[in-house]
Amino acid sequence: MSNGNNGLKKGLGIHARRVIAYIVLIVITFFCLFWFYILFINATRSNGELQSGFTLLPSTHAWDNWINLLHGTLPIWNGMLNSLIVAGCSAVLSVYFSTMTAYAIHAYDFRLKKYLYPFILMIMMIPTQVTALGFVNLVDTMGLEDSFIPLIVPTIAAPVTFFYMKQYMESTLPLALIEAARIDGSGEFHTFNSIVLPLMKPAIAVQAIFTFVSSWNNYFIPALILHEDKKKTLPILIAQLRAADWLKFDMGQVYMMIAFSIFPVIVVYLVLSRQIVQGVAVGSVKE
């Protein structure tokens, strides 16, 4: 594949353009990473050191900050555990049922199918914030406040995940395969679990990560539902940290807390960055 810059006579030469591109990219990289670098540096410094000014060098107080944070007022392990439970269950349920829905629309013919697909896509566009009122009201009436059920169960209906799965199925799941399984006497449910799911593995991995991360980062809905300290997820604890009179805080602990809540996602991302970045592109080309 060649591009429009071959045989370029006027305009900048290819070398100059390359140099400019690298400079811009390096500046952007700096702006993306600088904040996190400062975060991790500051998490290793004591409160006194933090007051005394800015530095790019790490200090030695990471462990002290960590111990102080653990013995502080924020139930961070509880928060981490709650976040893990909610995000983990959401990811599993959302991916499994979305794949199932996509399979139903892909492999079966039924009445009104024609309308179902655009209908699901339409729901995809409605932001959660808009329906929050009814949702919170419902949760109130059902007495499910301070429970993880309203955060986990609704993720079963995930139009975005469904859409991605449907796209992926169209390119990788031949109907003949399903026919063959049927002829061999495999039940429908068994076909789905043992033939369709394994074939969908790459798509499932990508979507599981996305669902996990978005649930992990979610603040709006959990903050309206979880009120008890022991039930709070990490974003709510961060908000609580912000709402507290933060000047009284040991800033080393504050940085440690922020680092603690974003660290797991950064690690997962660094391990799986390739699949994630590719996944974004694949899901978007054919919108």
Binding site: L39, W216, L234, I258, V265, I276, V280
Partner: peptide
């Protein structure tokens, strides 16, 4: 570069805001 520029998208928005606040 693609890995780096996509990274902030996955960071918890509330933690990112708290970080900027401090």
């Amino acid at each position: 570069f693609k890995t780096v520029i996509y990274l902030p998208n996955l960071i918890m928005a509330s933690a990112f805001a708290m970080l900027f606040f401090t």
